[in-house]
Structure formats: C-alpha cells, structure tokens
C-alpha cells in the first residue's frame, strides 16, 4: 500500500511521518514515535488501555488509523507529566492512593481521569465510576482509582480530603 505523509501534533510537538494507510494510531505512537506509554490490550476497542486524547477527547487509539489523525492533536500519558518530568496532579493522586498494580491499564485510566476532570472538575462518585467505565482494570477492582480521582477533585477545588479518602482501610 502506498505510504501517506501525515503530520500529527503529539504532546504539543508536530511529528511528520510517512505511514501506511492501515497503520493504527496506537502502532504509530508506539512503533513510529516510540511513545510506549500507550498500551495495547484488546485491539477491538473494549479495554481502553490504548486511550489517548484526540483534540482533547479520550478515544481508543486502536480503533483509529494514523492517517485519520493527520493535522490533529493527540496527547498520551507521556504528555501528562509536567515539563521537567514532574507528575501532574492526577498522576500524583494515583500514586498517593496506589491506584494501580501492574500499571498496564494505568496510562489509559489516567487519560480518562484527566479528561473527566477537565470537563467536570468536581465530579460525583457515580460520575467518576461512569467516566472510567470504558477502561478495564484487572488488578485494582477500581476502588483506589475512584479514590484517586476524588482526591484530585478535592485538591482542584482546594478542599481538605475527607477522612474516608485517606487510603486507609475502612
């Protein structure tokens, strides 16, 4: 298949490349740009491990071709960290509450959480559960992920975290 020339703005930087039209966006990110933080779990759009932001909306990068991203903005987990490598608020809250174990779903989960807090900085518990329901996690049972997002919302809204959310057994 003839290659097509595309330019995708990934984590703020334009990346030009010549790609086969059938190359998926996730393979483009991982194999062409070496951004291996985005993971492949099912390749049929269910698990959410490959979630990235596409023009600020969370999408499955396994269900989109790289050529469809030509001229668009894509953000991956690598783009969540602050300049200099510091963790963003949501990343830090994931660490504080131990919202992960194997880490494989984590980049996609962070993208979902990040997108939620951007459109709704003070979500209810049910809104949080809904927002991450397209991202499957096999390790955590989701509890500490919900806690992390609640903690991030508390901090965004400059609230003292409720004692329920201190990460201790209760």
């Amino acid at each position: 298949m003839p290659a097509k020339r595309i330019t995708v703005i990934v984590n703020g930087e334009p990346h030009a490349a010549s790609v086969e039209p059938r190359l998926t966006l996730v393979d483009f990110l991982r194999d062409v740009l070496d951004l291996t933080g985005t993971h492949v779990g099912c390749e049929h759009g269910v698990c959410g491990a490959c979630s990235v932001l596409f023009d600020d909306l969370p999408i499955r990068s396994c269900l989109m071709f790289a050529v469809q991203a030509d001229g668009h903005r894509v953000s991956t987990v690598e783009g969540l960290t602050e300049p200099g490598g510091g963790l963003s608020l949501i990343q830090d809250c994931f660490w504080e509450t131990h919202s992960l174990q194997c880490g494989y779903c984590t980049p996609g989960m962070l993208i979902a959480a990040h997108a939620l807090l951007r459109r709704n900085p003070d979500p209810s518990r049910q809104e949080i559960r809904k927002a991450i329901s397209g991202n499957l996690c096999r390790c955590t049972g989701y509890g500490q992920i919900v806690e992390a997002i609640e903690l991030a919302a508390d901090r965004l809204n400059q609230r003292t975290p409720s004692p329920e959310r201190d990460g201790h057994d209760r």
């Binding site: 991982r30 951004l35 291996t36 933080g37 985005t38 993971h39 492949v40 991956t76 987990v77 690598e78 969540l80 960290t81 490598g85 963790l87 990343q91 994931f94 660490w95 504080e96 131990h98 919202s99 992960l100 194997c102 880490g103 494989y104 984590t106 980049p107 962070l110």
Partner: peptide, 18 residues
C-alpha cells in the same frame, strides 16, 4: 507510596511489547 507506581504513572514502565 510504593516504589513501582511512579514509573507506571509516568508511562515509563517497560513491558515485553516495549
């Protein structure tokens, strides 16, 4: 805080596909 979580949160884990 665990020692492992940071690299996973930063997207710098090293899995076999990497």
């Amino acid at each position: 805080r665990t020692k492992e979580d940071r690299r996973f949160i930063a997207g710098s884990g090293r899995y076999v596909a990497d």
